[in-house]
């Protein structure tokens, strides 16, 4: 049952990315290119998604517990720290370069462009490198 719900949620997410145009790197890059052929569509994607999630989250949180779990697992940290900002900046450079973020990358794999066949494995390598990096003493926190 968890697998069916997970699959359905992924499919709806993917269809949302495709219908919205977010799975088309040209549209993403034109959103980011405010000096070029600017296409503000992506603001509507973010707006529609965030407002829907804002309302929906508050409705499901009323239940107290998730249907298939013991508790709502929300990020505990509220700290705006160096790893957060460094990671976000690095991600932004990659996003602005290729026009893909992780969701659209998965939802574009089956279309099979050469670009995505290079991007997706590189993304997985990047995730593994970051995980090793985070646990390495190089990035260990010094002092309080």
């Amino acid at each position: 049952m968890r697998n069916i719900i997970g699959f359905a949620a992924g499919l709806i997410f993917g269809l949302g990315l495709i219908v919205s145009g977010m799975a088309n790197p040209a549209k993403v890059l034109n959103f980011l290119d405010i000096l070029g052929p600017w296409d503000p569509s992506l603001a509507f994607v973010m707006g529609g998604a965030s407002v829907t999630a804002f309302i929906g989250y508050r409705l499901v949180w009323r239940r107290g517990t998730p249907v298939m779990g013991t508790q709502f697992d929300l990020p505990a940290s509220g700290t705006i720290d160096a790893p957060l900002l460094t990671g976000a900046a690095i991600f932004g450079v990659g996003w602005g370069l290729g026009g893909f973020c992780p969701g659209p990358a998965w939802a574009s794999l089956a279309i099979g462009s050469t670009g995505i066949l290079v991007f997706l494995p590189a993304m997985l390598i990047g995730i593994v490198l970051a995980d090793f990096g985070k646990s390495s003493p190089l990035f260990a926190k010094k002092g309080a």
């Binding site: 990020p75 790893p83 957060l84 900002l85 460094t86 990671g87 976000a88 900046a89 690095i90 991600f91 932004g92 450079v93 990659g94 996003w95 370069l97 290729g98 893909f100 973020c101 992780p102 990358a105 670009g115 995505i116 290079v118 991007f119 997706l120 494995p121 590189a122 993304m123 997985l124 390598i125 990047g126 995730i127 593994v128 490198l129 970051a130 995980d131 990096g133 985070k134």
Partner: peptide, 17 residues
């Protein structure tokens, strides 16, 4: 460019949670 973009997106999103 796409290889570099993929590496940066993977690394950045994992590092920045």
């Amino acid at each position: 460019g796409m290889a570099l973009a993929g590496l940066l997106v993977g690394f950045g999103t994992a590092f920045g949670s």
